[in-house]
Design a protein around this nucleic acid. Structure first.
Length: 572
RNA sequence: CGGGGUGUGGCGCAGUUGGUAGCGCGCUACGUUCGGGACGUAGAGGCCGCAAGUUCGAGUCUUGUCACCCCGACCA
């Protein structure tokens, strides 16, 4: 590709709304152009990068006997009514009517389409297991898009669906997918990715993992054990209650605390630690509006996704003033609350010497002992894991890091085959619902995450496995006939050898060309200049290491072959 | 959907007590330069987000509206 002809414009400055580095660099390099909120045009380099990533994904999927298919983007309402998701999914699914006034949806995921295809094709166990996958555009009308390609409304996704006769077979295959995912992310040059246990969200199903690009700009919080292999999304991470002294048998006593209401204020007034308090946190059932009360240790926060699962409902935070039943202030566990759902977090189990609300203004109770002063049948784990807490698996310290979700794998079970009525005959002639798994990767997010974790002050540092071009030629003095001729000779040679090459044939000063080469981040930069030609030499610079080698012109291709091979080593 | 903020050439910004729009980068042409974002000269490019209102006069004041961004609730 000739730079002079390339429809991109690089820029020294980024739009002021670009905050995170991958967004800044993608825009500065001219890889993406915003069209609307969360909707981007990918320029040629970004698209080339996407297709290289997609091809690696294809190879790994095909290795697992995947069959590439293409589901429709636009689907009739009926398909989504079969699974029930036409109603359970909210406004993030785009809906419209066609000219015949039929309700249609834009595909945001394709379980329905996959089951539809499979159930109308397959009727015998002899075809199972199988996996079908596609790489296609999805539209999700996100409430808030952000961060360039990190969170958009329209994006390309690889989604795969496997069908099995038994749970054991699904599990075996699931771990093969997990391996394939490890391969994919390693091969596309995703530095610093991990997989974590995750919530299954709107997909349904039980066991699920998310693949995360670890970066401080990530939107998800990940709980990672410093010692064992425990890694979980904060949404599902289990809390381990620490050891404590519960021998304090001093009787309860009401104390005046005046205006002190928050845990912090109470602690300060009574000169105690937040770990010795129990607080009440109020939620409401999103549908019915019924209040839900949680009692939890004062220093901890409620993990809302864990709470959702415990109460089996969507919840929203509730201000105490919004509901007269709980508006009296200083709520403690002894309150006679007219609330059906009261959840006690495990963090208060067996605690002694605690400070709790006295259920009237301006007073708290001290020396409260759980088990003596109140009898609680069930404790639930609904607390957010905090940095430094102990791992439930091995007891070592947990750390919290941020990550961007770039892929996930789910064991769906029979959620869709059952709801949509897909059956196959087993060897005994009985109809059974196949067991499904599904496996997704966000391609645009992968691009952003690669850049997020591989750049320097001058620009992107693209892995050779996915870089749009492997070699970037910078002719210094393109107006010099010798330089021009040699540069284009090399360019033609490389093209002939099948090496993706970009030649900066613009009549620009060297500084501009070098700066753009660094910004675009191709793995290898060649410099052709009058001085070098005078010595029969070419300069090769490796973007990743900054290493510069000068070679004689007739040794160029040999040297390049070995450098390319070397660089590829990491991504095999 | 709640809270905060911003809308002025492609990008980054300035614009005073209201007087009819400017700077830097980029872009075009010519010339000189050119191994780390060169310089000169001459240009092109703006319904000041949109709509009402106040005023002799609005980028500036008022109201409404739209869009976008940031922080939260959702997700690849």
């Amino acid at each position: 590709m000739r730079f002079s002809n390339l429809v991109i414009e690089t820029s020294k400055t980024a739009p002021s709304d670009a905050i995170i580095i991958s967004h800044v660099l993608l825009v500065r390099a001219g890889f993406i152009k915003r069209v609307a909120n969360g909707i981007y045009t990918l320029g040629m380099p970004a698209l080339k990068m996407a297709s290289k990533i997609e091809n690696i994904i294809r190879q790994e999927m095909d290795r697992l006997d995947g069959q590439e298919v293409k589901f429709p983007v636009v689907m009739p309402k009926e398909l989504w009514e079969m699974s029930g998701r036409y109603y359970s999914i909210g406004r993030e699914m785009a809906r419209f009517k066609d000219r015949a006034d039929h309700d249609m949806v834009l595909g945001m995921t394709h379980e329905e389409a996959a089951v539809h295809f499979a159930m109308n094709t397959i009727s015998s166990y002899q075809k199972l297991p199988f996996m079908i996958y596609q790489i296609q555009t999805k539209f999700r009308d996100e409430p808030r898009s952000r961060g360039g390609l990190i969170r958009v409304r329209e994006f390309t996704m690889k989604d795969a669906y496997s069908f099995h006769m038994t749970q054991e077979d699904l599990e075996k295959y699931y771990y093969k997918q997990l391996e394939a995912y490890n391969n994919i992310f390693r091969r596309i040059g995703m530095n610093n990715f991990i997989y974590v246990q995750s919530d299954s969200g709107m997909m349904g199903g039980k066991i699920a993992h998310e693949f995360m690009a670890v970066t401080p700009d990530g939107e998800d919080e990940l709980v990672i054990c410093s010692h064992c292999d425990y890694k979980a999304n904060e949404e599902v991470a289990e809390c381990q209650t620490d050891t404590f002294d519960n021998t304090n048998d001093t009787p309860c006593e009401e104390v005046f605390t005046g205006e002190a209401k928050t845990i912090e204020e109470v602690c300060q007034r009574l000169n105690i630690e937040a770990t010795n308090t129990i607080k009440a946190v109020a939620y409401a059932n999103k549908e019915t509006g019924e209040p839900i009360m949680v009692f939890i240790r004062g220093d901890l926060e409620v993990n809302e996704s864990k709470l959702c699962k415990v109460v089996r409902a969507e919840i929203i935070p509730l201000e105490s003033t919004e509901n007269p039943a709980i508006s009296f202030g200083n709520i403690g566990p002894l309150a006679n609350l007219p609330v059906k759902t009261i959840i006690y977090d495990r963090s208060i189990e067996n605690r002694a010497g605690m400070v709790v609300g006295a259920n009237k203004p301006e007073y708290h109770i001290i020396n409260f002992k759980v088990g003596r002063d109140i009898n609680i049948e069930h404790f639930h784990d609904v607390a957010k894991v905090k940095q430094g807490q102990r791992c439930v698996k091995c007891g070592h310290e947990l750390t919290i890091q941020n990550g961007i979700e770039i892929g996930n794998i789910f064991q769906l079970g029979t959620k869709y085959t059952q709801s949509m009525g897909m059956t196959v005959l087993n060897e005994n002639g009985e109809s059974i619902n196949p067991i499904m798994g599904c496996y997704g990767i966000g391609v645009g997010r992968a691009i952003a995450s690669i850049i997020q974790n591989s750049h320097d002050a001058n620009g992107m540092i693209l892995p050779i496995s996915v870089a749009p071009w492997t070699i970037h030629i910078c002719p210094v003095r393109i107006d010099n006939e010798e330089v021009r001729k040699l540069s284009f000779d090399i360019y033609d040679q490389l093209q002939k050898k099948g090496i993706d090459t970009l030649i900066d044939d613009r009549d620009m000063s060297p500084g501009v060309k070098f700066a753009d080469a660094d910004l675009l981040g191709m793995p290898i930069r060649l410099v052709v200049s009058p001085k070098l030609i005078a010595n029969n030499e070419i300069e090769i610079k490796i973007r990743k290491t900054g290493e510069v080698v000068i070679v004689k012109i007739d040794e160029l291709y040999l040297k390049l072959d070995s450098i390319i091979q070397n660089l590829m080593e990491e991504y095999k």
